[in-house]
């Protein structure tokens, strides 16, 4: 990687889990074929996964930096590469380049409150972030998670979420867009739920990931709650090829999502043209 940034390392497919009831989302745990190639990363970074002959695509790392033996990625089946990934079986070898991009500014969060707001299948790097914070629980203040999806079956990592609901050191609110048989938790869109939950902005940081429409309506709510733009972070997605700031595709204004991002503060985004 250091000599040739286009050269992928080999990863072995481990556990595969179907995450959503429409079967369009699958998680893959990837082990390093050569353990000496293992790398450290921080929540928010991404990797380029590739199947030789099919192509490459970028995915945020969903596992915790503390899970040293494998990397987890959750893949939404939309195009050629993601479809090929969905056909993978345990034991197969695929390519990976990474870790790429920047990360959530966890060092700034230390000693302060964090609110994590997610929507749909954009909870991947938020899971990584949450696991990172929980592993160092005493270093942070209040942690609030608001996570919504269209219906219960589209919430990622449900088993874990339901477990975390029982934790006393975490405020976790799950919500779905509409009433659903058997769903006895919250119903409502993420922006409205955020307003209702009203996490404190005093010494607080907000991290928001989700579909553009959710982000668009959640940001004003956070501003109303008193979060300044420097304390609101989001992760952007763009079509990427090289992932290393050369191919000219993923820029928003002068910033490249692949090397200057994917994590940006709202303050940074306000200086960029049309980021969503």
């Amino acid at each position: 990687m250091r000599d040739n940034p286009y050269w992928p390392i080999e990863m072995v497919v481990g556990r595969i889990k179907v995450e959503s009831d429409d079967r369009m989302l699958r998680s893959f745990d990837l082990r390093f074929k050569d353990p000496s190639q293992r790398f450290d990363f921080l929540p928010g970074q991404f990797c380029q996964l590739s199947i030789l002959g099919k192509g490459e695509a970028p995915f945020g790392i969903a596992s915790s930096p503390d899970e040293k033996d494998f990397l987890r990625f959750t893949v939404n089946r939309v195009g050629v590469v993601t479809t090929a990934l969905h056909y993978l079986k345990e034991g197969e070898v695929i390519g990976l380049r990474g870790p790429l991009g920047n990360h959530y500014p966890v060092e700034k969060f230390r000693g302060e409150d964090v609110v994590i707001i997610g929507g749909g299948f954009a909870f991947t790097t938020l899971r990584s972030l949450l696991l990172y914070l929980l592993a160092r629980r005493e270093e942070f203040g209040q942690i609030t998670v608001i996570y919504g999806a269209r219906r219960p079956g589209l919430l990622l990592y449900r088993d874990e979420l339901f477990q975390w609901e029982g934790r006393s050191d975490l405020r976790l609110i799950l919500t779905v867009d509409k009433e659903f048989p058997g769903w006895n938790r919250k119903v409502g869109f993420v922006p409205a739920v955020t307003k209702e939950v009203a996490p404190s902005s005093k010494k607080g940081w907000a991290v928001v990931c989700g579909p553009p429409i959710m982000i668009k309506y959640t940001l004003p709510v956070l501003s109303e709650l008193g979060f300044p733009p420097e304390r609101i972070y989001t992760s952007l997605e763009r079509r990427m090829k090289c992932g290393i700031g050369k191919c000219g595709r993923c820029n928003i204004g002068p910033k490249y999502v692949c090397i200057d991002g994917p994590v940006f503060s709202l303050a940074e985004l306000e200086r960029l043209p049309e980021p969503y």
Partner: peptide
């Protein structure tokens, strides 16, 4: 101008000029 695409062909990963 230097924008490019990366494509997987049958036997090799290649890069090809692309245009914004």
């Amino acid at each position: 101008c230097h924008c490019f695409d990366i494509q997987d062909e049958e036997k090799a990963r290649v890069r090809i000029w692309d245009s914004c």
